[in-house]
Simulated scan of single mutants.
Amino acid sequence: MIYLHVFMKRQMFSLFFLFLTLSIFSQSKELKEIGFEKIVLKTKSDTIFFIKSINDEKIKKPTIIFLQGSLPLPIIFKDKDDIFTLFPFKTDEYLTKYNLILIARKGIPLIGDFEKDAQGYKNAQGEVPFEYIKHDNHTYRTQQAREVLNFIYTEEWVDKKNIYVVGHSEGYEIAASLAEKNTKIKKVVCLSADPFNRAVEEVAKYRLESYVSLNDSIRQKQIYAITQNFLNIENIDNYKNDYDLYNWASYDEKLTFESFKKIKVPVLVVYGTDDFKSFHSHLLPFLLKEKKDFFVKAYPDYDHNFFKKQFDNEGNPLEDSYNWDEVFRDCVHWLETGSVK
């Protein structure tokens, strides 16, 4: 998915810019201009890059780890006149009170050129980097986020009692898995994904199509195949040599709402009713009735990225309105107060 600052640059789509190869020094300088800095986290088996909002005074602040969705996107974009992050909301109003953290996808440059890379980064050979493909799975992304969480938990600028995880789309599933029985996390927000898995989302799509296309027998065969594939998933380690298959199995092996059952802290699920990828979200209150600290918030007419279709008085379509700022503001209100607007 493409986040806020990418959409804000629509008027620049007609411009073409050269790709910029930036030194570490220039990256640091430019990131500071927008209130962020790069952190390199070295573990025994990995090197993880993430950005955090600058906190030179090392004041203990509540911290929000934002887990973005799929696609091989840089987390910083440049164009001719500007530099901006992949955060889907305007960050300025949160920089004083919160530490904001965004983790780079493995194998993807931290900074990309907006015109060239906004739909997904590709290398000089026109290919998605192998390192990204190899690590594009639920298992790695969860472990990567866990390493960042464990690291910041030891830092003096983090209020350890107020660490929040917010995941959008694919990041929704990662956030839910990360928070299972995790005592370092205070609250979790999951936005815009199916609370079961991708397979169930696909089954629902075919079932709805069968109601309007009068080809129920064909769709049922497809549904049966999807169901059997899910039932046949066993030890996902068996698929590690096939990266595409491992990606699929790692996301489809379990149902996300099962993670919700294991989470011991408050959870907020947010979705737009015009987002098919969130189709089953309305079932969560029925599935998790016993969890009193579980909340669901629906935004009528909003899509996967919280766009809403707009029309003039004659019914002619206008440019869609973008509502990520409103949605995230409501999420922060819940993080702070426990109350759903």
Rank of each mutant, 00 (worst) to 15 (best):
Y3E: 15
F7Q: 10
M8H: 15
K9L: 02
R10C: 15
Q11P: 13
M12I: 14
L15Q: 14
L18T: 15
F19K: 15
F19R: 15
L20Y: 09
L22W: 08
Q27M: 05
Q27V: 08
F36W: 08
F36C: 10
K38I: 10
D46A: 07
F50W: 06
D56A: 01
K58L: 09
I59P: 12
S70F: 12
I75D: 00
D79R: 12
D79H: 08
F84I: 07
F84E: 00
F89E: 05
D92Y: 09
N99T: 04
K106E: 10
I108R: 10
P109F: 06
G112L: 07
F114R: 08
F114K: 03
Q119H: 15
K134A: 09
N137S: 03
H138C: 06
T139V: 09
Q143P: 00
V148D: 01
T154C: 00
T154F: 01
E155V: 06
Y164G: 03
Y164R: 04
V165M: 03
G171C: 08
E173P: 03
A176Y: 13
A179R: 14
T183I: 06
K184C: 06
K186W: 02
P195F: 10
A204E: 11
E209D: 08
S213C: 05
L214R: 12
S217K: 07
Q222M: 12
F230H: 14
N232R: 14
K240R: 13
D242G: 04
N247L: 12
W248R: 15
A249Y: 04
T256K: 10
E258F: 14
E258I: 13
E258S: 11
S259V: 11
I263P: 01
V265W: 09
V265R: 04
K277I: 14
H280G: 14
L283F: 11
L284P: 05
L284G: 02
L288G: 01
K289V: 05
E290L: 10
E290S: 04
E290H: 04
K291A: 01
F295Q: 02
F295S: 02
V296Q: 05
V296A: 03
D301R: 00
F306L: 02
K309F: 09
Q310E: 13
D312E: 03
E319S: 05
D320N: 03
E326F: 15
V327T: 03
F328L: 02
F328I: 07
E336M: 00
G338H: 01
V340K: 04
